[in-house]
Simulated assay, not measured.
Amino acid sequence: MIYVSMDDTDNLESRGTGSLARTIAGELSKDYQIYGVTRHQLYDHPDIPYTSHNTCAVIQIENKGVEFVDEIFERVKREILDDFMEGSDPGLVVAHDNQITPAMVAFGIDAKCIVLNQQRARKLADNLDIRLEGLGGTEDGVIGAMAGVGLASSRYDGRFLRIGTEDVKGYTKTAEELFEAGVDQIVTVDGCNVTEGLIHNPQGRLLKTCPLGDKIILFVEEENGELKVVDRG
């Protein structure tokens, strides 16, 4: 797997980092097999500047070796710079599974609960030979971008903004439609598997599926006789 992680690409008037990541994933899908795009929540603290939510986004690319990292990095870098917004502080990381160690995962976990700095992010990238670059402003986005790779590679954090090359959204879907869209398992919050029937998504927005190991899981709960998608942030 190759992880393309970006953070702080937006300002108050522009589309968010997640939206940009989904657009870039669509472009990359012309040449690469996209596993999905995930969103990861980082530490919400007054000492950490962010636009609306302190989150980063990670595009995950399947079946490519480490030799493709530089090519993907340059391509995504151009996309981010072409979309650069004044007031943003974007950071970009592209890393292959072979470059990721427990220290990278630990950095991601720390980014959810303590204030980190660019120095630690850049030193970690240097030590692991991972491509990291700030693309404007204060370049503080390098912190969240590094964290995103660590969290996404753990396979137990965040939620999917896109499965494969498709956004999965809508007010009502059958379980069969969700499985066809790439959901591996539908589970109630009290542990029951759901294999059929209607799943209601009250707000009609992107389904908040979660990575759990090598599976994409959708959590639901029963309310008034209907199965509804659980909002997991």
Score class of each variant (00 low, 15 high):
Tyr171Asp: 04
Lys228Tyr: 04
Gly26His: 11
Glu27Tyr: 14
Ala21Asp: 04
Glu196Val: 02
Asp97Pro: 01
Gln203Lys: 15
Cys192Tyr: 15
Ile109Gln: 13
Asn54Tyr: 11
Ile61Arg: 14
Ile216His: 04
Leu227Glu: 09
Pro102Ala: 06
Ser52Phe: 12
Lys228Arg: 10
Val105Lys: 12
Met85Phe: 01
Phe73Thr: 02
Leu151Asp: 01
Glu166Asn: 15
Leu128Met: 14
Thr9Tyr: 04
Gly87Met: 13
Ala121Met: 08
Asp231Pro: 01
Gly65His: 06
Lys30Asp: 05
His200Ile: 07
Asp31Met: 07
Val183Ile: 15
Asp8Gln: 01
Glu222Ala: 13
Asn11Arg: 15
Tyr3Glu: 00
Ile199Met: 06
Thr23Leu: 15
Arg122Glu: 05
Thr165Cys: 02
Tyr35Arg: 14
Gly170Ala: 04
Thr188Gln: 14
Gly197Asp: 00
Ala145Gly: 09
Ile34His: 12
Arg15Gln: 13
Val115Tyr: 12
Gln60Lys: 12
Cys192Gln: 15
Tyr35Pro: 01
Val66Gly: 05
Leu161Gln: 01
Thr172Tyr: 03
Asp7Ala: 08
Thr17Arg: 07
Asp157His: 08
Phe84Trp: 07
Tyr32Glu: 13
Gly170Tyr: 05
Asp89Gly: 08
Cys56Thr: 15
Pro211Lys: 11
Asp97Phe: 08
Ile216Met: 03
Glu196Met: 07
Ser19Thr: 13
Leu227Val: 10
Cys210His: 08
Val220Cys: 04
Gly36Leu: 05
Asp97Lys: 15
Tyr3Lys: 00
Lys112Gly: 05
